[in-house]
């Protein structure tokens, strides 16, 4: 279990989330100018994005100013590593196909994040992947790329 936050830091989840949402608000707000506010005698596609972006900027200031929730905890290493693993999976799966990428992800998941033995991780990953392949491509007839694309 990760520890509660003793003091607010830049890595406090609320501040990281606010930073992410700030980028979103600025991107959409500035992008609204390119879309236009009045096009062909009618309100343009930039009206609502601009209004919402401005409101979001104001709200983000209020979020930063309000006290942090009592149960807010610092980031833990395991979920951060898991997010990285899932993103790597999303990048490689179109090239390797589902079998290799899914097996690798599940082994890393069970062995790396849950500290199970390698044998158990391999057996469970093979079993789960096989079950998934039976349900989706076989029973539900979902076309899936199983092997490498090359």
């Amino acid at each position: 279990m990760n520890r509660p936050l003793a003091t607010a830091r830049l890595t406090t989840p609320t501040y990281v989330a606010v930073l992410m949402l700030l980028v979103l608000a600025l991107t959409f707000g500035l992008g609204a100018f390119r879309l236009g506010f009045w096009v062909d005698d009618a309100p343009g596609p930039g009206v609502l994005p601009l209004a919402v972006s401005i409101a979001l900027l104001v709200l983000l200031v209020l979020v930063v100013r309000e006290p942090l929730p009592a149960d807010e905890r610092a980031f833990a290493l395991a979920p951060a590593a898991a997010i990285l693993a899932t993103i790597v999976y999303a990048i490689v799966v179109p090239y390797t196909g589902f079998v290799i990428a899914t097996l690798a992800l599940l082994i890393v998941w069970i062995r790396g994040f849950y500290r199970q033995s390698l044998l158990r991780a391999v057996v469970a990953s093979v079993g789960l992947t096989a079950s998934g392949l039976v349900i989706f491509p076989l029973l539900l007839k979902v076309p899936m790329q199983l092997g490498p694309a090359w």
């Binding site: 992800l105 599940l106 998941w109 069970i110 994040f113 849950y114 469970a124 990953s125 992947t129 998934g132």
Partner: peptide, 9 residues
């Protein structure tokens, strides 16, 4: 661990 891996799959 099994629950988590199953949901992910």
């Amino acid at each position: 661990w099994l629950l988590s891996a199953t949901i992910l799959l």
